[in-house]
Amino acid sequence: MPQTKEKTTAKIMDGFTKEICLEWYQQMMMMRRFEEKAGQMYGQQKIRGFCHLYIGQEAVVAGMMTAIKKGDKVITAYRDHAHAIAMGITPREVMAELYGKSTGCSKGKGGSMHMFSKEHGFFGGHGIVGAQIPMGAGIAFAEKYKGTDNIAICFMGDGAVRQGALHETFTMAMLWELPVIFVCENNKYGMGTAVERTTNVPYLYKIASAYDMPAAQVDGMDCLAVHNAFAEAADRARNEKIPTFLEINTYRYKGHSMSDPAKYRSKEEVEEFRHRDPIDAIANIIKQKDFATEEELTKIEDDIKLVVEDSVKFAEESPYPDASEIYKDIYTQADYPYLMD
């Protein structure tokens, strides 16, 4: 019977190469600068609708990316820009999607919450809290059915853990031994409601024990800890067909969405997490280990700024979808007789 682990502790740095550390740095800096720009463009009303930024949570996706392999599938909720970019969608296509332009990864039909890439195995961007949990299990179901050794990684926020969909899905994922990792990005607040105000079991990973699902609590401000947790869970999913539930403790520096001033939490709390910033942490390790100089890191950052600027230029210059697109991509049937009046 699988045992629930109380805590995953970060393994020592040995074994992690310059290449991986620089990849984390590059990935996280890309997410950070992209999201900062997205926030800025939202302020200028270039980006509309709901927009949820990933700033502060970068180590979760960065740590995952070095622990999974090509062919693995990812699905998440609506805080999805970073997942999309990490999985291989270009910053241009993500920014254009935020702008609602036809060159966006979802042709301007999805927006902030609905990034998709079939080519890169990114199953979206979903807007109903917890709905992506059974879908993630279904993606894993299909991989097992087809006999591949790919796995599915299914992200959710701490709010989603309260949804019945999670409990139904955990039951079937264990019963059917699906190759899936369920990942709760616990950023402490479901919108404005603190986790402790939603449950008498604030250690979310413990919920998995009701299903005999292996689980771990992970420091989400530490790429290495995240990587190790994902590596172990991926191995279990791929080779033993056993799901894992990872509660990754992270923090969003910004509000829930662009309209949220986040008055439900203290400045001290935000500062506490900023002191543990995952990008600063990995930059320090890189410098300590002489993987790169300060100048080389600055060069990486400058290059990323150029990529982000280019993504904005691309989005600005791209056209909106033609109004005729409204009746496209609803059905695969080309001549579906829509009611026009």
């Binding site: 599938k73 059974p134 299990a137 279904g138 993606i139 969909a165 079937m172």
Partner: peptide, 25 residues
């Protein structure tokens, strides 16, 4: 493998079906 009993969990197995359909089944 192809004829599958589920627990009484309509939301869960409907969603698993949707995910499987999106992934080629």
């Amino acid at each position: 493998k192809r004829v599958i009993d589920t627990p009484i969990a309509e939301l869960g197995f409907a969603g698993i079906g949707v995910g499987a359909a999106m992934n080629g089944l």
